[in-house]
């Protein structure tokens, strides 16, 4: 039993996520937003074990440029540029083109947001941008609503991964509609990455238990009281959730079920 348990655990650690032919040893994708300092961010990223991390594209400022890109490169963390802050397909496509030029990757986390209040994806612009970017040779990681119909549409348009939200960006409300996430997973043939809304480690474990292939989060780590400790917590949570999913949970029951046999009890007269 001991050997089997150990072997299973080791097997899980050799359970890479393969996207676009690239093997990622960690199923935790990190964002970099919200960290007060680059030093602290670097330590939290290392503690999380992530091998893929998002960045935003913004105007170059001589005072502060270059260091984030170098920080990730030094730690062998692959970069996933996003289109955060884009409200239209046009802006998202142009931002993706700039990211491809600047960072020399055709991977892009496509975010097309409807408004600043909800930060929810605009489904129509998202579909339009996905179609355009796939046509231009991008590998599109589509940040989407927790809508099983839309998720399948994005996959059929050629998205490399679909990334349904657990809850609105930055809320830490966890996974508001686990049923929809499960439904998205059950119908998808591309990787499903739970993105946004994660508050704490158990939310990430739940995402993996629901069958997601990976989890993407930023705020939950970068704005935690101790980001390094929280990064480590998420590393374990994603691994635990993945193992639990593979192990197969017991069915839920209405009534109690004894785990000790009734036969052979001592009888006290």
């Amino acid at each position: 039993m001991g050997e089997t348990t150990l072997a299973t655990a080791q097997q899980a650690r050799r359970d890479p996520l393969t996207i676009d032919g690239v093997e990622l040893g960690s199923r935790l994708i990190m964002g970099t937003g919200g960290a007060p300092s680059l030093d602290g961010l670097g330590a939290a990223l290392v503690a999380s074990g992530t091998e893929l991390t998002t960045v935003a594209m913004r105007r170059y400022s001589p005072a502060e440029s270059g260091s984030l890109f170098e920080l990730l490169a030094e730690r062998n963390i692959r970069v996933l540029p996003n289109t955060a802050g884009c409200f239209t397909a046009r802006d998202a496509v142009l931002t993706a083109e700039l990211a491809r030029e600047a960072l020399e990757t055709d991977w892009v986390k496509l975010e097309v947001i409807a408004d600043e209040h909800t930060l929810l994806p605009d489904a129509l612009e998202l579909v339009d941008a996905t179609e355009q970017l796939v046509g231009r040779g991008f590998k599109v990681f589509a940040y989407t609503n927790d809508d099983p119909v839309l998720a399948l549409r994005l996959e059929n348009l050629g998205a490399t991964a679909v990334m349904p939200l657990g809850a609105p960006i930055g809320t830490g409300l966890g996974i508001l509609n686990p049923h929809n996430i499960e439904l998205i997973v059950s119908r998808a043939s591309v990787p499903v990455v739970l993105d946004a809304g994660i508050g704490t480690a158990s939310d990430a474990a739940l995402a993996m238990e629901l069958g997601c292939d990976a989890v993407l989060l930023a705020t939950a780590v970068t704005r935690a009281q101790d980001p390094v400790l929280m990064g480590e917590a998420f590393r374990h949570a994603v691994l635990a959730g993945r193992l639990a999913r593979q192990a197969g949970r017991i069915p839920r029951r209405e009534h109690a079920l004894a785990s000790s046999a009734m036969e052979g009890r001592a009888e006290f007269l």
Partner: peptide, 29 residues
């Protein structure tokens, strides 16, 4: 509003009134 590939930077002359955006990767997402 059109990307200039780096291979074209050397051969692309700017003109009066051009609107240029120079971007890089920053924390986000």
């Amino acid at each position: 509003a059109e990307v200039v590939p780096r291979s074209q930077w050397h051969a692309t002359a700017l003109a009066e009134g051009d609107d240029v955006e120079l971007v890089t990767a920053v924390q986000g997402g």
